[in-house]
Design a binder for these strands. Structure first.
Lengths: 215, 215
DNA sequence: GAGATAAGTGGATGCTGTCCACATTGGAGT
DNA sequence: ACTCCAATGTGGACAGCATCCACTTATCTC
């Protein structure tokens, strides 16, 4: 009856942890994945890392600071999902088709992440005030671009290939982002929750159609 | 030095409160107005009502149940703001112009509420799972329609006047709602926070333009 | 080697939601 | 008019939470 604890308890024997800061972030991400931002509880995170609650204060000012870093990491995962969606694109017929596909992949990737990792998605964007920092470096994906920057680049592509008139370009990211993010919320927490993935994908394409027409 | 407490403490002398359930909801709305859903704290709410924390459990199963009712009340206020926006519309030239104006007023009212009462707006829609009940009776405004139903009615008006092709009608509320709600989030918590009201209004009209074109 | 200093510990405080047993009282039924 | 009951409010307790302060331990620097 030694295994009273649930999972694994590393039971570190060294006084120093060695990599506590990262361990806390990792644990925070894991908790956020299954329970969203409110599940990132200081005591739970330190417990996971096999350390006393106060130890966290050597690396973060308070719970909000930890949550902010976790949030940034989640945003970076959004960026990577977008990048993956673009990378998986089949070769396009011409450059305008390619630009369109890359633009649509931005939205599709965003929506895919929201559905596959709702907890992380909420953590990424639901924390009041954290979206302001969505342009910070540590919110970037492999390409070094944040989700917002990826969207901007895709829109630039639309302008370059003549699909989007130049005078419609300013502020276009806010239009696109509004629509896609709104749908994501609808799919995660709203009346569209529990929609079959295929139907959800259709809804996503529908919204992106609307954006292309209306932008 | 008798006035140690901050505000007013009714200091009820009757053992029974008389209208505690409503008093708790009112207090909850007040807290939500200034602090959002997380400010609807059971103990604070009962304190405000001049009652011991446990008394709340005679009227609500738990904090979540209270918050749900407060959320419904907030949604009803959204509906009323939309209705007010429609009611304030100047007389239109013809029926199609009227239908368009009524449709746009739905979005404009929604966005106006989000900006004027961000705390209540968050409380209305930020609570996971509560948007599912956005069609409940007590989420309705003066007309007896919920925000979703108001949007649906406005879309029906667009179809009747021939502005919106009938085959585009199904699912249109989700497209429109996605875009407008997404912008609301952007304005409240996102990079567009703190935008000058006039600019915010412009952004709203921009998004509604996109919806009209792209729907 | 000595001492500064970063990193982790232990204990305490005041919040929170919720449970249980108890007190009060208004009203229904006699 | 009297009694009893069920609804309503109280009091005390518990566990979990974030955070503060004083203390210990190990590592890095001179």
């Amino acid at each position: 009856m030694a295994a009273t604890e649930s999972g694994k308890k590393p039971k570190r024997d060294t006084y120093r942890h060695g990599d506590l800061r990262n361990a806390l972030i990792r644990a925070g991400l894991e908790l956020a994945r299954t329970g969203g931002p409110e599940a990132v509880v200081l005591r739970a995170v330190t417990r996971e890392a096999g350390v006393v609650p106060n130890a966290a204060y050597r690396h973060f000012a308070d719970r909000a600071a930890l949550l902010h870093v976790v949030s940034q990491a989640a945003i970076a995962q959004v960026a990577r999902t977008m990048e993956a969606e673009q990378a998986a694109l089949p070769p396009a017929a011409d450059t305008t088709a390619a630009a369109r596909a890359r633009f649509r992949a931005v939205g599709t990737g965003y929506l895919r992440f929201a559905q596959e990792e709702p907890g992380l998605f909420r953590t990424a964007f639901h924390v009041p005030g954290d979206m302001t920092h969505a342009a910070d470096d540590d919110a970037a994906g492999s390409s070094g671009k944040t989700p917002f920057e990826l969207l901007g680049a895709a829109l630039d592509g639309l302008v370059e290939t003549g699909i989007l008139p130049e005078d419609r370009r300013p502020g276009a990211e806010f239009l696109a982002w509004s629509a896609v993010h709104g749908l994501a919320v609808l799919l995660i927490d709203g009346p569209l929750r529990g929609l079959h993935p295929a139907q959800a994908h259709d809804a996503g394409q529908h919204v992106i159609d609307m954006i292309e027409r209306g932008i």
